[in-house]
Simulated assay, not measured.
Amino acid sequence: MNGEVQLVYRKMRYKFLTINDENYIIDQDRRPWLVFFPFAFWMIPHTAFKIDDKDKLEQIKLSKNETKTSYFSALGVGVSLLLANLLKPLMAYLNIQTSVLMNVIILFLFLLLVTFFRFFLSNMNKNSLYNTVKLDHVNTTKLWIRPKSIKYVLAYLFAYFSFSIFSDVNFNFY
């Protein structure tokens, strides 16, 4: 069965799917482990929520209540850039010897902070959608999403491995 998948502006968590003039919402963030294994998206079934009301569908597509998330994102990027530029002259002084245990503790705390922030934003987006459509009271179905052709799989593989290789390269420009 073929369908049309529509991306939603400023809402990467959800995809709208139209199959035989029936509209569905797919919540891509129900399984957060897919971030680490993106190819599993095509290998597992997804829960799709059927939306019968056209007004609700348009309201979701056009809703402007995602500004809280964009403010947090802009604030995070701004603070990161500011700190990076302010700390650049001090990098040589901050190069201190630490034990392996201290490095593991710092890494663990950083990962805990990033995970908390990710789930906080995910929960905010979920509540935003639930305020518009009560997904507990709509019909659900399991859908298998497959790419149109092998060309998409190969392009995705190439991009995935290219970014993986470039993220592991250590560039020293100073």
Score class of each variant (00 low, 15 high):
10 R>H: 12
130 Y>L: 13
85 N>L: 14
93 Y>S: 15
92 A>L: 07
169 V>W: 02
36 F>Q: 12
166 F>N: 05
149 S>P: 12
4 E>Y: 02
167 S>M: 14
25 I>E: 07
105 I>P: 02
117 F>L: 07
130 Y>T: 09
116 F>M: 04
99 S>L: 12
85 N>I: 07
43 M>I: 14
34 L>Q: 01
79 V>G: 01
126 K>P: 00
11 K>M: 12
18 T>V: 00
169 V>I: 05
7 L>H: 03
69 T>M: 11
79 V>F: 08
69 T>P: 00
131 N>W: 03
63 S>F: 02
56 K>F: 00
157 L>C: 15
131 N>V: 01
67 T>E: 02
154 L>Y: 12
141 T>Y: 08
49 F>M: 06
77 V>R: 11
13 R>L: 02
92 A>K: 14
169 V>Y: 05
144 W>P: 01
140 T>Y: 00
7 L>F: 11
17 L>N: 02
18 T>C: 06
81 L>I: 14
1 M>C: 05
2 N>P: 13
117 F>H: 09
54 K>Y: 08
81 L>D: 04
57 L>W: 00
164 S>W: 13
98 T>A: 15
131 N>T: 01
95 N>E: 14
143 L>I: 04
123 N>R: 06
7 L>M: 10
79 V>P: 04
65 N>G: 12
68 K>M: 05
63 S>A: 01
81 L>G: 14
85 N>W: 10
58 E>Q: 05
156 Y>G: 15
51 I>E: 04
85 N>E: 07
91 M>G: 05
59 Q>R: 03
113 L>K: 08
138 V>T: 10
39 F>A: 09
53 D>F: 02
61 K>G: 03
120 F>C: 03
155 A>H: 12
77 V>I: 14
124 M>S: 08
158 F>M: 10
150 I>Q: 13
33 W>H: 05
84 A>W: 13
92 A>D: 15
161 F>Q: 02
21 D>G: 06
169 V>S: 04
107 L>K: 11
115 T>F: 06
89 P>R: 08
81 L>N: 13
6 Q>S: 07
68 K>I: 09
148 K>V: 15
125 N>I: 05
28 Q>I: 08
26 I>W: 06
46 H>M: 07
85 N>T: 11
105 I>D: 02
133 V>W: 06
156 Y>E: 15
87 L>S: 12
92 A>V: 12
128 S>Q: 11
24 Y>A: 00
138 V>Q: 05
109 L>M: 11
1 M>F: 05
31 R>K: 08
165 I>C: 02
165 I>V: 11
72 F>D: 10
146 R>W: 10
65 N>C: 04
124 M>Q: 09
154 L>K: 12
146 R>E: 06
90 L>F: 13
43 M>L: 14
1 M>K: 13
106 I>D: 04
127 N>K: 11
62 L>C: 08
31 R>E: 03
127 N>G: 09
158 F>V: 15
107 L>F: 15
44 I>A: 10
36 F>H: 09
170 N>Q: 10
